[in-house]
Amino acid sequence: MFIEIIDVIISGLINGSVYALMAVGLTLIYGVSKAFNFAYGSLYSLGGYIAFLLFSLAWINNYLLVFCLAAPILLVIGFFLEKLLVAPLRKRDDWEIKVMMITLGLALFLDNSFQVVFGARMKSLPTMLEGSFELGEFILSYQDVAIFIFSIGGILLFRWFLNNTRTGMSVRAVAQNPEGAQIVGIPKEFVFAATFAISTVMVGMGGILLAQKYFITPTGGWDILVKAWVITAFGGMGSIKGSLYAAFIVGMLEAFVGWHFGMTWTLIALFAVLLTTLAVRPQGLMGKWG
């Protein structure tokens, strides 16, 4: 019993860490540009498929190489998606709704493209690290540890970027005060595209990390989209700290509900917790009004 609970906690921590990586990206876009990205889940699948393609190349045989190649690819894709699809809408009235529609359209387009190109059958990625080790009575797989380390590493790298680089500072500036950012001469359009690009990398990396455990399918991103939004709303729209806490809470909740009541109950439990939280605190855990 005790060992089982520890196992559940570990599984919650690991999934929570990947959720955190992905939800922080989604929160970032919302916080900076107030845009809802409904293609976020499909970009998760995109990450998985890019890794799948990379692994099919003969000279690529390890994850480090895949990360190093996939990150810039995702960055460029994200940047141009924003420039081509989202940026032109921003000049119009009620662009928020239009951005939702166009990203929804993008999601359907991507999912169907995946199906055409890769087929409907599941694809899998090789395991990052084989084997496991014993820690007293618990058995931890190297793969899980690696996923955890990469997710947390990604979040720390992101944090470093926000606090210590000029582009990162300008991202925070636009999120905190778009008018003020314009006054000091920050090019807002570039910052919007940059945030979209960075969040694409974050969710794509999440896709690669989780694909080794859960497979890649053309429509697999929807589940992630729902979870990422639940986490974002739960943590407080636009609050990165809130998303971090919420991601781990959701990871744990999922693990415990799945273990005790069965996996079919996890989404129900998730929404129950979300709705209860929002009923008491409509701004989410760490969100602010306005």
Partner: peptide, 9 residues
């Protein structure tokens, strides 16, 4: 700016 427009956080 008259209303300052600082970055609060």
């Amino acid at each position: 700016a008259e209303n300052r427009e600082l970055f609060p956080e």
